[in-house]
Structure formats: structure tokens, C-alpha cells
Design a protein around this nucleic acid. Structure first.
Length: 967
RNA sequence: GCGAGGGUGGCGGAAUUGGCAGACGCGCUAGCCUUAGGAGCUAGUGCCUUCGGGCGUGCGGGUUCGAAUCCCGCCCUUCGCACCA
């Protein structure tokens, strides 16, 4: 640990102090946004100023600083700004606790974070700092609202919303996670409120389509957005209730319409009251009541047995005139589609489960796509000649105590059925399922192809079975036969059966054909549905941007004129949870249109509105006349590289894409996507220890390897979690910087693993990084006097073999590190390559007569490519090795193409896939298949191996290897 | 259940296009230096071995001269969505 470090180490404290403010004082990170050529916009997702930053947060900003430094050395105009997503509940709660203003809390946290960035050496253009909670920012958030309102993209409606009683505000659909408030895990309550929405659903298709243009986004984020948007193609079909009321359902499978044997409405569906018969009213009321509270009780439980209640009403299936019962069930959601479904239990798993549970008929209407068919003859129904007859039908069968199971196929099924039919005992029956569903009686075979046949089958079986017969449907009888389990249900597209005139329609056409027919008949239409809902942005809390709307009795709903923005947050005392409506006088205003008395909207906007456009503000953050300069943002955006946590894969990124498209359509920007390239970095985890009695323990209280609680001796639960205060597993950068310096933290953070993956922080790991920096320091400082003057480069032709090897290594490393950083985002392998270069250089420097010019070239390159990782020590070494300018004024090193080619190549030789020798050949020979083969065959070891076998074939792969096949 | 990742030494990981598996680091072992070592330096470190070699990238098959990498079927695991009709 920190305080235990001993021995001679470089003086990182003094060095870091020396350079800490140097770069910002010299203005290296200030950006001229009027630049039009060679611009590069890097952006980290701006943080909520929460009051502390741990080493996991560091990962994010260190990546950004690293890339920014490389791009600056490349001579680009780099914009890497920072701001604060500063509205939101924690500041308000802290204000209530301390009876201060949220800004007091926020401001303090911002100062803490800025100091932490300074310690890390993470640089920003602080002249462009923004905070979403300041009037000169939220003025433009309100402006954005007004633009959306004018474009018809912001509207107010009364809606059933998720209200979190703990946070005392409504939640967006996206903020309810697993049925709970994402912030406080309270189950939200449904409430009917007048709320503002942004019409993101208007953009659903474009948000989906344009994902295809985001080639440099991680696939998983693209997929998550696709799923969230949730496009599905189907049809709306109108059923007619007995009362005459139309019931419109949405289905993705109109080709299964003939199998719709009942309907299900969401419990809240308005037609329920119309359809309910008096005797069902009590049951319906009870069920609705339970469903309304279901979020609390059922949503967390894993068993999801279907529940529901019959309304007592019936409707007519428009395609076949069948009278189907109408049920209500909570597996149908009012918020998706039309809140009503046709149930096709034969081809929808949920409907199947529901039908079996409530005894509703199940009629197959889509043929299986395979040939599998099974028949079962109960033991009591087996006639004398059955086995013989089945042998002739070429079907295989097995006998058990219960009866005889025949495994048939489509082609021999008819033969099997007649064989069974002719050999049944007089009071028995047999069943067929799979490619055909039928019941075989001694006098007839009845197919399960309609509700009428379902009833007939059932009455015959009941008659044959006697008193204890209780099945309500034919499918229930089939379900009792265990070997039938895999052939009773399927949801595939297949040939339509039992579907009137459509019977025989192949599966690949069925859906389109039926939709066309429905449309021609006027009983339905093709429809596209999205899971995406409009974005609920009203919040009943103080600490957010006030919604700039005014309500006038004469003029109605009027937006605050743009020249009267911002609507300022009123100053107030914080003594408890409140919204703007609780502040006396806030509401009172005059109508901007007629001048009469009016009142303000008392809600504030969701903080995701603030962050849905902030990246535009950074280009001209102080512009008092406009939200952003169209000309400037068109040049600087889309953002070249956006980096943040994957937890924002849906909400923030989707909202920002939507707002960008809306601004585009209103003519404010020319681009349609805000983020050209996205990278989502993984979390940093750390061991956390939990005692069943004492709860979470600090790692410092648990000695390494301990599995028992030091307080009570009970066994500890040890596992790795994302760093969080509550789990007491946070690593404070202060401790790390004090013990090893910021450079070491930066290096270790980049080296510990692939940056997109979650990774464990270990105290052992960081010492490796520290050791490496000390070795670098020592090597360079001890060899300063042996370096050729600045500017001299090695002459490759005059180098000895060891020197030539180092020279090639220098250039290979420059190439690899450059590509790893700029193209692959693979910082861990870049560090590994630098370490390899160092190891080789170190060995070379220790030899008798190192070439001074080569040492100069190698040391300079080493410092330069290491500098984005560890800027402090590199800036120091750069100066100590005789350079007058800062590293940031130095060009990123380029590599010499010729250095990438080796004079000789070592090529492995395989015999029957096994490595048998390595041969060293000239580069020219390695490139020539014939020469390569000859060299391999000439090798003594290979000749030895070949002496006892016969060579069948030689496969020389130029530059790579030689593969020999023998027998 | 659906979707997307991942599974390689004692550990974190590397292998970029199908071509020498285990780069780099941690840890460990031995030695040197040292009053001392949780400092530094040197050497070693996938497993087995009769020292010839054999085995080895979650498991089982396959394609190929050649597979961690491609194909088929499983298992485990992380994340996201989750009764979306």
C-alpha cells in the first residue's frame, strides 16, 4: 500500500507539481473554433458533479486526455471541452439536508472535480466550461423547448404516468427499470397527470434507419437502440363486439387470424366496461384493482403464471365469423399496439399457456415446417391387429404401459391413421399431433380444425371415457400425452391450414397476402408499431430548467417569447421537497399575447433535455445571442470521438440523436447524427467485502487472503463490484497519486486491460506501472550524457547488428503505438509495445558501445510515444534530454517504412501440423515460395524427420511458414 | 425467453487477414547486492515427460496442409430487453 513504498524512486511529486499548470498556462488546450481545416472534436460525456471522483471515473478522462494530446501533437485543432450536467435530484436533496441552495452544493463539487482533473494532468479548454444549471445555459434549453413546441414536437396531454413517491416526481418510460424507479428502486405508482411530451415517436423510423450509418459505433449499443425502438410489422384488424362496438387489435401474425379463438384486452382498456356482463362485473373490478397494484407484487416475482378474467362478452372474428369470448389479462399492455389482442393459442406461446389454463379452444392454423407427426394409442384402445398393421405402414413405434406411441412422418401418416383406425378396440380412441392434429375413433377420424370439431371431439371422448372426464378442449387431452410435448405448439411461419380460402398459402407469402386481403375487405390494414414511446419531460421538482409555457384564460397555452427567456428559477429556501408550484408568486405572470393575467407552467424539464444538446453549446459557449452558431457547429460536428459509459447506450444517446434530427429538420443544423464515432469504456471494479453481520467492510480492514470478518469471525462474502461508496470499495485517486504519482495511475489505468471491458483494480498491478516508470527514468537520466545532440538521427547503414535491431524496433513500435491509439483504441497493447521497446533499448544501452545517434533517436521516440500516457514525467525527461520546447509543440513521431522490413526472417517449418524446426532465411528467400521450400528441405533437422517417411506435399507460405505433409 | 459480448497459465491479459499460442505486466522460484528488503539487478516460470517427445485456448464434432480464430451442436458466464401480441 501507499505508505509502505520505500527505496530510491524518481521524485514524482516535485515533477508533477512543476508541470501541473504548465500546459494550461501555455494554452495548449485552448481551441480556436473559427478554425475550418484540420479540426478534431473529442468529447467525454459530461459528468454530474457528484462530489467525488474515483479511479474508475479517471479511466474515462484519461482516455480523453491521451487522445487529445496525440491529436495536438499531430497538429490538429483539437476541441476537448468539459462541462457539468448539473441539474437533478442529488443537489436538491443535499440542499434540503443542509438548508442551502443546490447551487452551493453543486459549485463545491465542481471545484473538487476540477482540482482532481488538475492533479491527474487531464486538461480541458476551461474557457468553454458550461453548467446546465446556470441561466445562460438553461435559457437555451428553454429556447430548444420553444422551438420543439413551435414545430409541433412538444405537446401536453393527460396521461397515466409513472410517479415515484420517493422522488416526488414522474419518471420517463426509460427511467423505470425492472418495474422500479432507476434512482431509488421504489415501485412507481400510476397517476393521471397533464404532462409535456416530446414527440420522439415521429422520428422512430429515422432513429432506426440511421443506426446503419453509425459504422463506428459499438455493435451492442446499436443493437440496444434497435431493441428499444422495437419496430414490428403487422396489421390492425377490427373485430366486432356483440354490442356492435369495434375492437381493434394489433397483430404481427395476421396469417394466423383463423386460429383466433378468443380475445384479450388490457385491464385498463376502455371497452371493458362496455363488454362486461353484470355477473362478471365484480370479478373484473377485483382483477383490475389487482392489476393496478401489480407493479409492486408481481413484477418482481419470476413465476409469471397467466391470470385473467372473462368479461362475459363476445366478439365476432371478421375472417370466419366465429364468436370468440373476450377476456382481460395483465399480459396485454394498454401502452403497446391497441391494448387489445386476438389470441391465437396454437401459434403464440403466451396465448397457448392462457388457453390451457382457462380451457379455451386451441386450433392449429399454420402447418409445421417439419414432417414430424406422432400418434398415441392408449393401452386400453389397442386392438389385436394393430402391431401388424403398423409394421406394414413402415412407421416406427414404441410400446409402454400407458400405450403405443407411433413416430410417423407426413408421407406415411395417412397409412398410420388408417392402420390405427382399423385396429382400435370398440370403445377406444387414438390421437395424432404434429403434421396433422386428429382424433381417431373406430368409425371416424376427426381433425382438430375448427372450434366445432373441437367440441365434437370432446363430446365423443367424454362419452367414451366416462364419469371422471374433465377436459375442456381437445388440446388439453393431447397435452396429457407426455411425448407430444414438442409437437403441440409452434410459432413459425408455415403453410396456412384450416383458414378458409387461404388454406394452402405458403408461409413466405401468407402475411402479405392476408394483409392485402384485409385491406381490400376494409376489415384491417397493414401497420407498423414501435415500442418507443413519446418522451415524457415534465418533472415536478425545483432543480431543473423551468418549462417556458404560460397558460392564459383567453389565449390558452402560450410559449414564453424568446426575447423574454430565460424563465429564471426563483430564489428560495430549501426546507423540503418541492416543485415550482410550491413557491409563492412563481406562477403569477401576464399573458405575452393579450397582457391579461396568466400563470406559468410549474414543472421543470427532465435533465436529459439539458444533455441532449450540450455538445452544440461548447462551440460558442459564451454566445449571448444564440444557442449556437450554425456555421460553427456545421464545421465542428458530428463529434469525431464521443466517449462515455455504456449505461447511456439508450437514454442519453437516443435523446441526443432525436434532438439533433429535430434541429436539422427545423433548419438549425446541417448534420443528422451528432456522434460519428462512439466508444463506451468499461467500469473499474474493486474487491468488496461483506460480513453478514457488519455489512460492507473497507478493504483496508481486511488483510489479504482473509475470508473471515476481523470483527466477528463470520465468513466474508468477497466479490468484485463497480466502485461505489455504499460498498466501501472505492479507490481514491488521492492515495494513489500520493504514493506513486498521477503518471503511474494514468499508466496503470491504460495498461490494466482493454478499455471497453470491465476490469478489476488491484494494488499489485499499480506497482508494476510504477516500477516501469522508475526504470524509464533511471535509464534516460543515467544516459543523458551519451545521447547525440538533439536532432541527430541514426544512420541505419552504419549500425551494428544490435543497433539495427533496436532501430527497427523503434520504428515498429512507433507504428504499432500510433495504430493502437488512433485506430484500435487498444491502449493496453500500446503500453505493452512501449515496454518491449524499453526492454530492448535498456539491454542495448547496457552494452559496451551504443551508438549515440541511435540512443538519441530511440530515447526521443520513447519519450514522445509515452507522453500521452504519462505527460508529467515525459515533459520532465524531454527537458532533461535537451529539448527547448514542450512535447506538445513537438510533432508525433513518424516511422521509417524501411525499418519495418527485416533482413532475415525466421520461418517455422511444420510437418503434419507439428512444429519441427525454425529456419532463418533472407527476406528475399522468405518471399519466394520455391526458395523457401528448398531452404526448409535443406534443414538438417527436417531431413532427419523426413528420412523415415515419404514427403507427399510441401506448402510454402511466403513470409510466414512452410508446411510439409508426409505419410 | 429474446438480443449482444465473454470463456486462453496461479492472476490481468496478447495473438490486427486461418499461419510459431501465452506478447506485456502481476505473482512465484533461485541467485546477486544489501545491516535489512515489500527496493534494485540477473536467470527461470503453460502442463506432463522415460528428456525422444507428448498434451494444451470451456465441452463434443467438423472443414483445412494448418484452427484460440471458420462451421455445427452443447455448457458456463456478463450485460441489455423482458408477457411488446
Amino acid at each position: 500500500m501507499a505508505q509502505d513504498r520505500t527505496g530510491d524512486v524518481y521524485d514524482f511529486s516535485a515533477i508533477e507539481a512543476r508541470w501541473r499548470d504548465f500546459w494550461s498556462e501555455r494554452g495548449f488546450f485552448q481551441t480556436d473554433t473559427s478554425a475550418r481545416e484540420g479540426t478534431y472534436y473529442y468529447l467525454n460525456m459530461f459528468p454530474y458533479p457528484s462530489g467525488y471522483l474515483h479511479v474508475g471515473h479517471g479511466r474515462n478522462y484519461i482516455i480523453g486526455d491521451l487522445i487529445t494530446r496525440v491529436k495536438i501533437m499531430r497538429g490538429l485543432h483539437v476541441l476537448n471541452p468539459m462541462g457539468w450536467d448539473a441539474f437533478g435530484l442529488p443537489a436538491e436533496n443535499a440542499a434540503i439536508e443542509n438548508e442551502t441552495h443546490p447551487w452551493t452544493f453543486t459549485q463545491k463539487n465542481i471545484e473538487t472535480a476540477k482540482e482532481q482533473f488538475r492533479i491527474w494532468g487531464v486538461q480541458f479548454d476551461w474557457d468553454r466550461e458550461i453548467a446546465t444549471c446556470l441561466p445562460d445555459y438553461y435559457k437555451w434549453t428553454q429556447w430548444l423547448f420553444v422551438q420543439l413546441y413551435k414545430a409541433g414536437l412538444a405537446y401536453k396531454k393527460k396521461a397515466t404516468v409513472n410517479f415515484c413517491p420517493t422522488c416526488d416526481t414522474v419518471l420517463a418510460n426509460e427511467q423505470v427499470v425492472g418495474g422500479l424507479c432507476e434512482r431509488c428502486d421504489t415501485p412507481p405508482e400510476p397517476r393521471d397527470l397533464e404532462q409535456w411530451f416530446f414527440k420522439i415517436t415521429d422520428y422512430a423510423q429515422r432513429l432506426l434507419d440511421d443506426l446503419n450509418t453509425l459504422e463506428k459505433w459499438p455493435d451492442n449499443v446499436v443493437k440496444m437502440q434497435e431493441n428499444w425502438i422495437g419496430r414490428s410489422e403487422g396489421a390492425e384488424v377490427v373485430f366486432t363486439a356483440e354490442t356492435g362496438d369495434p375492437i381493434t387489435v394489433y397483430t404481427t401474425r395476421p396469417d394466423t387470424l383463423w386460429g383466433a379463438t378468443f380475445m384479450v384486452l388490457a385491464p385498463e382498456h376502455p371497452l371493458v366496461d362496455v363488454l362486461a356482463t353484470p355477473e362478471q362485473e365484480d370479478a373484473i373490478a377485483q382483477y383490475r384493482d389487482r392489476a393496478a397494484r401489480a407493479s409492486e407484487i408481481d413484477r418482481l416475482s419470476t413465476d409469471r403464471e397467466k391470470t385473467g378474467v372473462f368479461t362475459g362478452g363476445y366478439a365476432l372474428n371478421p375472417v370466419n365469423g366465429e364468436k370468440v369470448p373476450v377476456w382481460i389479462a395483465d399480459y396485454v399492455m394498454m401502452t403497446y399496439g391497441t391494448g387489445a389482442i386476438m389470441a391465437v393459442p396454437a401459434h403464440d406461446e403466451r396465448d397457448f399457456e392462457f388457453a390451457i389454463k382457462f380451457g379455451l379452444p386451441i386450433i392449429p392454423v399454420i402447418d409445421r415446417t417439419d414432417d414430424v407427426a406422432k400418434a398415441f394409442i392408449p393401452a386400453s384402445a389397442i386392438g389385436d391387429g394393430l402391431a401388424l398393421a403398423l409394421d406394414q405402414s413402415e412407421a416406427s413405434y414404441r410400446r409402454s404401459d400407458a400405450g403405443l406411441l407411433v413416430l410417423a412422418t407426413r408421407s406415411n401418416l395417412d397409412a398410420v391413421i388408417s392402420a390405427i383406425g382399423e385396429n382400435l378396440s370398440s370403445n377406444g380412441y387414438a390421437m395424432v399431433a404434429g403434421a396433422r392434429f386428429a382424433f381417431i375413433f373406430p368409425d371416424a377420424t376427426i381433425d382438430l380444425n375448427s372450434t366445432a370439431s373441437d367440441r365434437e371431439i370432446l363430446s365423443r371422448c367424454s362419452l367414451l371415457s366416462g364419469a371422471d372426464f374433465s377436459a375442456k378442449t381437445a388440446m388439453e387431452l393431447l397435452q396429457d400425452i407426455a411425448p407430444f410435448a414438442d409437437v403441440l405448439f409452434h410459432a413459425d411461419y408455415g403453410v396456412m391450414v384450416n383458414s378458409g380460402d387461404f388454406t394452402g398459402t405458403p408461409g413466405d407469402r401468407a402475411k402479405a397476402d392476408v394483409i392485402a386481403w384485409l385491406e381490400s375487405k376494409g376489415i384491417g390494414k397493414g401497420t407498423i408499431n414501435f415500442r418507443l414511446h413519446d418522451w415524457l419531460i415534465s418533472r415536478q421538482r425545483y432543480w431543473g430548467a423551468p418549462i417556458p409555457m404560460i397558460y392564459c384564460e383567453t389565449c390558452g397555452q402560450v410559449p414564453v417569447p424568446e426575447d423574454q427567456l430565460p424563465v429564471l428559477l426563483p430564489e428560495t429556501e430549501f426546507i423540503g421537497k418541492m416543485g415550482l408550484g410550491d413557491i409563492p408568486g412563481f406562477q403569477d405572470t401576464t399573458c405575452p399575447t393579450c397582457g391579461g393575467p396568466a400563470r406559468r407552467d410549474t414543472d421543470t424539464m427532465d435533465t436529459f433535455v439539458d444533455s441532449s444538446w450540450y455538445f452544440l453549446r461548447f462551440i460558442n459557449p459564451q454566445d449571448a445571442a444564440q444557442a449556437f452558431s450554425k456555421d460553427d457547429v456545421n464545421h465542428w460536428l458530428p463529434i469525431d470521438q464521443y466517449v462515455g459509459g455504456v449505461e447511456h447506450a439508450i437514454l442519453h444517446l437516443l435523446y441526443a440523436r432525436f434532438i439533433t434530427k429535430a434541429l436539422h429538420d427545423m433548419g438549425h443544423v446541417d448534420f443528422i447524427e451528432p456522434f460519428a464515432r462512439l466508444f463506451t469504456q468499461g467500469m473499474v471494479c474493486h474487491a468488496a467485502y461483506k460480513c453478514p453481520e457488519h455489512g460492507w467492510l473497507y478493504p483496508t480492514d481486511v488483510s489479504a487472503g482473509d475470508t473471515e470478518c476481523p470483527k466477528c469471525g463470520k465468513p466474508l462474502e468477497t466479490s468484485s463490484f463497480k466502485m461505489s461508496k455504499s460498498k466501501r470499495n472505492v479507490v481514491d485517486p488521492k492515495d494513489i497519486v500520493e504514493a506513486y504519482g498521477a503518471d503511474t495511475e494514468r499508466l496503470y489505468t491504460m495498461f490494466m486491460g482493454p478499455p471497453d471491458r470491465d476490469i478489476d483494480w488491484t494494488d499489485e498491478g499499480i506497482r508494476g506501472a510504477f516500477r516501469f516508470l522508475n526504470r524509464v527514468w533511471r535509464l534516460i537520466v543515467e544516459n543523458v550524457d551519451r545521447l547525440a545532440p538533439v536532432g541527430e538521427a541514426a544512420a541505419p547503414s552504419s549500425l551494428d547488428e544490435a543497433g539495427a535491431t533496436v532501430w527497427r524496433r523503434v520504428h515498429r513500435t512507433i507504428k504499432k503505438v500510433t495504430e493502437d491509439i488512433e485506430e484500435r483504441f487498444s491502449f493496453n497493447t500500446a503500453v505493452a509495445a512501449i515496454m518491449e521497446l524499453f526492454n530492448e533499448l535498456s539491454t542495448y544501452a547496457a552494452m559496451g558501445n551504443p551508438d549515440p545517434a541511435l540512443l538519441r533517436e530511440a530515447v526521443d521516440a520513447l519519450i514522445l510515444i509515452l507522453s500521452p500516457f504519462t505527460p508529467f514525467v515525459c515533459e520532465e525527461l524531454w527537458q532533461r534530454t535537451g529539448h527547448a520546447v514542450s512535447i506538445l509543440e513537438q510533432a508525433w513521431p513518424s516511422f521509417v517504412e524501411a525499418a519495418l522490413e527485416e533482413d532475415t526472417v525466421e520461418v517455422p517449418v511444420q510437418v503434419n501440423g507439428k512444429l519441427r524446426a525454425r529456419i532463418t532465411v533472407s527476406a528475399a528467400d522468405a518471399a519466394d515460395p520455391a526458395a523457401l521450400e528448398a531452404a526448409a528441405l535443406a534443414n538438417a533437422r527436417i531431413q532427419e524427420v523426413l528420412a523415415e517417411v515419404e514427403l507427399v506435399k510441401a506448402i510454402p507460405i511466403p513470409g510466414k511458414m512452410v508446411s510439409l505433409v508426409v505419410k
